Simulated assay, not measured.
Amino acid sequence: MDMRATPRRATLPAGARAHPLVLPEPLLDTWFELMPVRQASTTRAVHAAVMAAAPLLVPSLKWGNLLYLNNGRPFLSLTPHRLSTQLQLVHAAAGPRRAPARVLRGPDPRTLRFRHSQRIDPAMLVEVLRNVLRPFLSPRT
């Protein structure tokens, strides 16, 4: 047989670097489609709010969770559960001080929990995330 034993690597433009954690959008869409409908709708809404609040974060899948990378390092983790979806600051010493009443705090101060039975207000969530993420994503002087 004249078939290659190993597939060819994708060629990238000069100077571009690919990270194995970074996945294309169709794979993220497939990940959402594998979830139950209620779970997927909550997770998609939180994902859209994170991307609106911090567009420089790069979404990727690892350990069955949606991770958001900041400069190649895990920064946020979006984890779907049976009754809720949790958004956690991965490497932050302290989380949000106060969350709105409709956004429940999780088991850890760095975690926000979103129940699938509750409606998510996208504008409110984007504003909360901008306030929470501002100290961590702002350029250091």
Rank of each mutant, 00 (worst) to 15 (best):
N70Q: 01
A101S: 07
L112T: 08
L137F: 08
A16I: 08
A123R: 10
R98M: 08
H116I: 07
F32I: 11
V37N: 09
Q88I: 05
R8G: 01
P122Q: 07
F136D: 05
A54F: 12
T111P: 05
T85S: 13
R115M: 13
R82E: 08
L34P: 13
P96D: 13
P55M: 09
A40Y: 06
L112M: 08
T43Y: 13
S138V: 09
L112G: 10
R73F: 02
R82P: 05
A45F: 04
P80N: 00
S41T: 10
S41D: 09
S117P: 07
R113A: 05
V103C: 02
F136A: 04
A16L: 08
P96T: 07
A99K: 10
R115W: 14
T6F: 02
I120P: 08
L66G: 08
R8S: 09
S138P: 01
R102V: 07
L112C: 11
V22T: 13
G15R: 15
R9V: 09
R119V: 09
S138I: 03
K62A: 15
A45W: 15
T79H: 03
R134F: 03
N131R: 15
L76P: 11
V128T: 02
M124G: 10
I120F: 04
P20S: 03
T43N: 01
L104S: 13
R115N: 10
A53D: 02
A53F: 10
F136T: 08
T85R: 12
A123F: 06
P74V: 13
R110V: 06
K62M: 10
N131S: 11
A49T: 03
T42V: 12
F136G: 10
R113I: 02
Q86D: 11
L12W: 15
H81V: 09
T6A: 08
P139C: 06
R97Q: 14
G95A: 15
V128F: 05
N70P: 01
A40N: 15
R97D: 02
F75R: 00
R97H: 14
M124F: 06
P20M: 00
V90H: 09
N70I: 05
A14Y: 11
R97Y: 13
T30C: 06
P100H: 01
